[in-house]
Amino acid sequence: MIEHPDARSAVIDLLGDLADPAFQQRVWVERKGDPNLIENLDQAVADLFDLYLDDKNIERYIGAVLRNSSEAERVAELAGVLLPLYASLPPGTSDAAVIAMPEWSKVMETARAALRTFSEE
Score class of each variant (00 low, 15 high):
residue 21 P to S: 08
residue 109 E to F: 02
residue 44 A to V: 12
residue 72 A to F: 06
residue 22 A to K: 10
residue 49 F to E: 04
residue 117 T to Y: 02
residue 107 V to I: 12
residue 69 S to P: 03
residue 14 L to N: 09
residue 75 V to S: 05
residue 12 I to Q: 13
residue 82 L to C: 06
residue 37 L to N: 03
residue 24 Q to K: 12
residue 45 V to Q: 00
residue 20 D to H: 05
residue 109 E to M: 02
residue 44 A to C: 13
residue 34 D to P: 03
residue 51 L to A: 04
residue 114 A to E: 10
residue 111 A to S: 11
residue 22 A to Y: 06
residue 120 E to R: 13
residue 74 R to G: 01
residue 29 V to T: 10
residue 3 E to C: 01
residue 54 D to V: 03
residue 113 A to T: 15
residue 58 I to L: 05
residue 15 L to F: 03
residue 78 L to H: 08
residue 34 D to G: 02
residue 119 S to R: 14
residue 76 A to Y: 00
residue 43 Q to A: 07
residue 99 I to E: 04
residue 68 N to C: 07
residue 68 N to Y: 06
residue 32 K to I: 00
residue 59 E to D: 15
residue 11 V to N: 05
residue 78 L to P: 06
residue 108 M to K: 11
residue 88 S to Q: 14
residue 80 G to I: 11
residue 69 S to Q: 12
residue 33 G to I: 01
residue 106 K to D: 11
residue 12 I to K: 13
residue 28 W to Q: 05
residue 1 M to V: 11
residue 3 E to P: 00
residue 57 N to L: 01
residue 93 T to I: 11
residue 20 D to K: 04
residue 7 A to W: 15
residue 84 P to T: 10
residue 34 D to H: 01
residue 93 T to S: 15
residue 36 N to W: 02
residue 103 E to G: 04
residue 9 S to R: 15
residue 67 R to L: 10
residue 117 T to C: 14
residue 78 L to W: 08
residue 62 I to E: 14
residue 24 Q to H: 12
residue 114 A to N: 11
residue 10 A to C: 03
residue 93 T to L: 13
residue 55 D to F: 07
residue 102 P to C: 02
residue 97 A to Q: 14
residue 59 E to V: 14
residue 65 V to Y: 06
residue 91 P to F: 14
residue 50 D to W: 03
residue 88 S to N: 12
residue 35 P to Q: 05
residue 71 E to C: 07
residue 120 E to W: 04
residue 121 E to V: 08
residue 39 E to H: 06
residue 121 E to G: 10
